[in-house]
Design a protein around this nucleic acid. Structure first.
Ligand SMILES: [Mn+2]
Ligand SMILES: [Mn+2]
Ligand SMILES: [Zn+2]
Ligand SMILES: [Zn+2]
Lengths: 120, 120
DNA sequence: ATAGTAATAGGAATTATTACTATTTATAAA
DNA sequence: TTTATAAATAGTAATAATTCCTATTACTAT
């Protein structure tokens, strides 16, 4: 993978927010630095960065969000303000359980909890 | 909500499969009975049925799937064959945990586990 | 039967994402 | 340094999933 200032910028944007931004949010932010950057470049680089284990993708209903935190963790999504916050459930236990009970070899466990956050 | 043969058919299709079908799968199946049914009707009725608690919606990456089983449960998705199977984790504990630790009032907990199923 | 209401079909619009292509750019060899 | 070339880019078109719109149809209560 060759260096590009676009990829560097995109990586930096993702790595300096905890908002779990969408591609479009990242695109708007990136345009402030590189005004003619294209949305295709955003998507291409986000998926490259994901493939290289540098960032994570999470799915919020029918859109992707990007997470700087590649360590396995889970999310709380507030129905009122839309905020997504990190939590850590102990998925190792679940992983064991699905193996023991279903002989299912889990490689990823994602827990998405929706409800009302403590700001309301 | 008034009776309609379209809604009855859509409900029946969802309630007689455990495949967690997409809107498009349901559409194709429905057309065999009502050849001029429209995709808009599929979506409208699926979301009505969901609002009335008759069926459930689950999100598989960036598309919706529909589940006849409205009792809280979770899913295993196989990366090889794409099959989605039901499991039951004990989410009551998780619900308590997020309340105690984060004061987050959970109304829905979805656990999505991907990996390799016991058919491979 | 008629009127009022609720549902429909069909297509247009929207949103998120991917694909295509001509041009530019990073890197490494000559 | 110049040059070769593979990778990346901008811009645009295409696709996929979903929602919105509107004229028409079907039920229901008078
Ligand atoms: Mn996170
Ligand atoms: Mn299910
Ligand atoms: Zn909130
Ligand atoms: Zn499988």
């Amino acid at each position: 993978m060759r260096f590009s200032k676009q990829r560097e910028l995109i990586k930096n944007i993702v790595q300096t927010t905890n908002l779990h931004p969408t591609a479009d949010w990242i695109y708007k932010k990136a345009k402030k630095n590189i005004s003619n950057i294209s949305l295709g470049t955003i998507y291409r680089n986000l998926s490259q960065l994901n493939q290289d284990g540098i960032i994570n993708i999470i799915y919020d209903n029918n859109k992707a969000r990007y997470d700087w935190n590649t360590v396995s963790h889970d999310h709380l999504k507030c129905n009122k303000c839309g905020d997504i916050t990190d939590i850590h459930m102990h998925t190792e236990e679940l992983q064991k359980k699905v193996w023991n009970q279903y002989k299912f070899e889990a490689d990823n466990i994602e827990i998405n909890i929706t409800g009302i956050c403590n700001k309301h």
